[in-house]
């Protein structure tokens, strides 16, 4: 069993995402509405079953852990809270035996906190439908001894009967300012110098995912202890493609020379960039372009092709061929080259 005393040494090597996990509900960034509602329920000491959903890095796990800590205190948490996630085996057997047993045990009324336990099912969308179905009756039967909290990214993957038994809380992607203020707070605590522009870029590349942003910040800190962090480096960390590589691809498309396109695409892949990332960025570049480089109708068509290629890629197609096709299609499209029907 883990000892509760954590030596100073290991605290240093702890990832910042763990170190700066919100300790109380008030610490949770940005989710004002959700937190306000939860605050009230915690005060009334009467929790419903809960379903948290939202994109990664928005504070779902942090919130429930914070609630549990407030309700039971750190010492009692171990006995009162059971956390199961996708790394635990969560087949139907586990639900039937382990979870059921835990759910059924009653706790004495003398101890601090409300008279129920919490079972956290993290990453619930990776549970099988059978396992979810096994939960249905269990949630009702054991409702006077246990509260369930399901956490998932996609609420659509949770079966309807479970959803209807829970109070749903949506966690929205963090807005720029609250991510930034959180990062600034960490910077200040760690004694790290970071200018506002770099933080903006960090927030931008992490797309509202605070965990990503904090991970990047920590890496940046270890790598550049006392130096300034450059924008390029932030992009590289995030696996972002450098803007000029994208620009070269677009330029090759504009040149309408097949050989040039072929070379540029090969070069692009030799650099090891990922095609999906390219789709994101090339889309941004083209759709939000307001220099008049592309007409509206061209933009619309290109967006359509990007969608198609994305589908192909997600079905496991070859990145090189597909991206080559994308650039060729874009090239045809912006030259008003007559697309031939060949069926």
């Amino acid at each position: 069993m883990k000892k509760s005393t954590v030596s100073k040494d290991s605290e240093d090597s702890q990832p910042w995402t763990e170190k700066y996990r919100p300790k109380s509900l008030e610490d949770v960034s940005a989710q004002e509405e959700t937190v306000a509602v939860l605050r009230k329920t915690v005060l009334s000491q009467n929790l419903p079953h809960m379903l948290f959903y939202g994109p990664p890095g928005t504070g779902k796990t942090s919130t429930i852990l914070a609630i549990a800590r407030e309700l039971y205190g750190v010492e009692n948490m171990r006995l009162r809270v059971k956390e199961l996630n996708a790394s635990d085996d969560r087949g139907i057997d586990v639900i039937r035996v382990k979870v059921k047993k835990f759910a059924r045990t009653v706790i004495s009324k003398n101890t601090r906190g409300p008279p129920y336990k919490i079972i956290i099912l993290d990453e619930a969308d990776s549970m099988t439908y059978d396992a979810q179905a096994a939960l249905r009756r269990l949630m009702e039967d054991s409702s006077n001894t246990t509260r369930f909290c399901l956490i998932c990214n996609y609420v659509t993957r949770i079966i309807e009967p479970i959803v209807s038994r829970c109070a749903q809380f949506r966690f929205k992607p963090l807005d720029t300012s609250s991510s930034k203020s959180r990062l600034e707070m960490i910077c200040a605590k760690e004694g790290m110098i970071c200018d506002s522009q770099t933080l903006d870029e960090l927030v931008r590349v992490s797309n509202g995912d605070l965990r990503t942003a904090i991970t990047y910040l920590q890496t940046a800190n270890t790598l550049f202890k006392n130096e300034m962090i450059t924008l390029e480096f932030v992009r590289e960390l995030a696996g972002f493609i450098q803007p000029d590589a994208i620009e070269q691809l677009i330029q090759s498309a504009e040149s309408h020379s097949f050989n040039k396109i072929e070379n540029t695409v090969s070069q692009f892949f030799l650099s090891g960039y990922s095609a999906v990332q390219l789709l994101f960025q090339i889309q941004d570049q083209i759709i939000y372009d307001n220099t008049g480089r592309f007409t509206e109708i061209q933009k619309a068509k290109i967006a359509m092709y990007i969608g198609e290629i994305d589908k192909y890629l997600s079905e496991g197609c070859d990145e090189h061929l597909q991206v080559l096709n994308l650039i060729v299609t874009i090239s045809k499209n912006i030259s008003n080259y007559e697309t031939m029907d060949f069926d």
Binding site: T17, D209, T215, G316
Partner: peptide, 17 residues
Amino acid sequence: VTSRIIAPIRSRCLLVR
């Protein structure tokens, strides 16, 4: 390729190209 690595994993790692 990183395309087939799910986002939550990517966000927990230092990406090295």
